[in-house]
Nucleic acid binder design. Structure first.
Lengths: 237, 237
DNA sequence: AAATAAGCTAGTGTATGCAATAAGGCCGCA
DNA sequence: TGCGGCCTTATTGCATACACTAGCTTATTT
């Protein structure tokens, strides 16, 4: 667990709410796959890393549990979530539903400034795609999720935006567990296509592109029922 | 603040997680409108009522803050949320989107047992509608929300179910603040119509009914920009 | 030698104490 | 008499201390 870099940085900046800072740091670590699913998040350990008491850590962990990124078991502790294939399917089903609505609303509200921001973001994504190494890969996954979060923000509905934050984070976990080729690297610029359709005001096409895009991501997963269960069952026979 | 009835009851039943019990009790109180928007939820006071320390109360309040039912201000405390008209619009926009998806999925999965449960529920709703008095009114509102939550459960997506829990709760708050005639009492049995369409497997019609229903609820609101803001602006001129 | 039970340890659940902050009251001043 | 600043007080933020639970180790018995 190496999160030390974040700690000092966020502490002096955020005098206001340290629990939130810890939450964000852990969230990033989970989404970036620096913390593997199943990893135990010991209160004392995290507290030591961030130089706060367990009280504050508990708040942060509870928030993450609410988002579904962390699974909390009474008297046992908190662990990075280990979504089942069924969980994964539900995440993507939810995304298909909500992102379709977001695309429709975003198309109506998209400003020139938004388009410019998206262009900058797409360039950044491309840079990461071009780069090699695990660090660039992590950055690419993060940036890929950020695209969807930006879109949700443009849609102007704070509630849907919050839902998308959660769904994108959960998606990262799912991809970490079940992703085959690593990234949604089916050799496509889905995001660029979506933006293009949005710019021309073609809502229907943009929606279709989005659904295809989510389909691509999901198709890249290997959701066959986990081996661990099969193994257990085999031993019981 | 009279929540005493719940406290003793939930304590002996739930040895497992007292914070959750308190959360549920407060949640019910807010959704039932026993706690008005803006009411301060003092940690010490709530703790005394439930006979737990502030630590546990804080967890409960934080959970409610995450659901949007409670607004937490640093060094000031937690208050029952006071959604703005814009918040209200976003709640219903989100519901239109998500419940359309839920109806479609529920139609596919609806079993006979589900139908029977819905029928029982509708009867209960009717009983409350027939009864007079504020107590019956509260029960009616609650039951009305429960219909939507049941539907979400039938749809079989835990994530969407959680989102609906939050949206239904927020709706109750909004109705408490901006509701004109009190309940969605536009003299209709929207829920029964939705169930009927679902039974016949007519997804399109069920979806349409659901959207109409949400429209009915929203139409019953008076979302003209709050007087407080207008007053402030008037004073600033 | 294997299995079971008892104690031990590590870590979470809860309460409480202390420090800090914000709201309200009080006094002085114009 | 009205207004502004200071102080008091109630309440939250955080840390720590204690209680309890689960899992592991060990020892004893069959």
């Amino acid at each position: 667990m190496k999160l030390s870099a974040k700690s000092s940085l966020s502490m002096d900046a955020n005098q206001e709410d340290r629990a939130q800072a810890i939450r964000d740091a852990l969230r990033d670590a989970i989404v970036d796959r620096r913390l593997a699913p199943g990893t135990k998040l010991s209160e004392a350990e995290v507290g030591a890393l961030f130089d706060v008491s367990r009280t504050v850590v508990r708040y942060a962990l509870q928030m993450l549990a609410f988002e579904g990124l962390v699974h909390s078991e009474r008297n046992r502790g908190a662990f990075v979530s280990n979504p089942t294939p069924e969980d994964a399917r539900q995440v993507f089903a939810s995304r298909r539903l909500i992102e379709a609505g977001i695309v429709a609303e975003a198309a109506r509200r998209l400003t020139k400034a938004d388009v410019a921001a998206f262009r900058r973001h797409l360039e950044e994504e491309d840079r990461y795609k071009a780069s090699r190494g695990p660090e660039a890969r992590r950055a690419e996954i993060k940036a890929s999720g950020d695209f969807h979060i930006m879109l949700a923000r443009v849609a102007g509905n704070a509630i849907l935006e919050k839902f998308m934050d959660e769904l994108v984070a959960r998606s990262s976990l799912v991809i970490a567990l079940y992703g085959r080729s690593g990234v949604s690297s089916c050799g496509h610029d889905d995001h660029a296509l979506i933006l293009e359709a949005l710019q021309t005001g073609d809502v229907e096409r943009a929606t279709e592109m989005m659904l295809h895009h989510i389909g691509h991501i999901e198709a890249d997963l290997d959701l066959r029922t986990g081996e661990s269960l099969t193994l257990k069952e085999a031993l019981n026979l």
